Simulated assay, not measured.
Amino acid sequence: MQKLVLFFSFLLISIGALAQADTSAFTKFNDFNNLVLNGGVKKPEAQKQFETLLKRINILEMIRAERIIPKTQWVFPLKGYKSSAIGGTHGNGYFDKGYRYLDGNKHGAHPAHDIFINDKNQDCIDDRTSKPVEVVSVDDGWVIACTNQWEPNSNMRGGKFIWIYYPATHIFTYYAHNNQIFVKPGDYVTQGQKIAEVGRSGYNAYKKRSPTHLHFSAFKLADGIPVPYNPYEQLKKAKTL
Rank of each mutant, 00 (worst) to 15 (best):
E233R: 13
A205R: 00
G202W: 05
D223G: 03
T190Q: 15
T147W: 11
G104K: 00
V227A: 12
G224S: 00
L221S: 05
T169Q: 13
S210M: 15
K97Q: 15
K236Q: 10
G159F: 07
Y188I: 01
L235P: 07
Q193T: 03
P185S: 07
I195P: 02
Y99V: 08
S154R: 06
G108T: 06
I125F: 08
E134Y: 10
P152I: 04
P211A: 11
G159Y: 13
A218R: 13
P211F: 06
L235D: 05
S201E: 02
T129K: 14
A196N: 03
P132L: 09
N118L: 11
G141E: 09
K184Q: 11
Y174G: 05
K120N: 15
N179V: 04
G192Y: 03
S210L: 09
H215T: 03
D139S: 13
N121Y: 12
Y101E: 01
K131R: 14
G108A: 00
Y175N: 06
G141D: 10
T147R: 13
K120S: 15
Q191P: 03
A222I: 07
T147H: 10
K160A: 01
A176F: 02
Y229S: 05
G159Q: 08
G104N: 04
I225W: 11
K184A: 08
N155E: 11
F182M: 04
M156S: 15
K236G: 06
N153Q: 15
P132G: 10
T129C: 07
G98T: 11
G186W: 06
D96Y: 13
R209T: 13
Y99L: 03
H213E: 07
K194V: 05
D114L: 14
V136Y: 08
E151I: 15
D139Q: 10
S154I: 01
E197P: 07
D123L: 02
R200F: 09
N204I: 15
D187G: 08
G158A: 14
A205G: 09
P152Q: 05
A176Y: 05
D139T: 02
H113R: 00
I162M: 05
H177K: 06
H110Q: 11
T173N: 01
P228Q: 08
S154D: 13
A222D: 14
N105P: 01
S130Y: 08
Y175P: 03
S130Q: 12
F172T: 06
F182C: 04
G98S: 12
Q193K: 10
K97A: 14
V133S: 02
H170F: 12
P167G: 07
H107G: 07
V198L: 10
G158E: 13
S210V: 14
F161Q: 15
D114G: 11
Y203P: 04
P231F: 10
P211S: 09
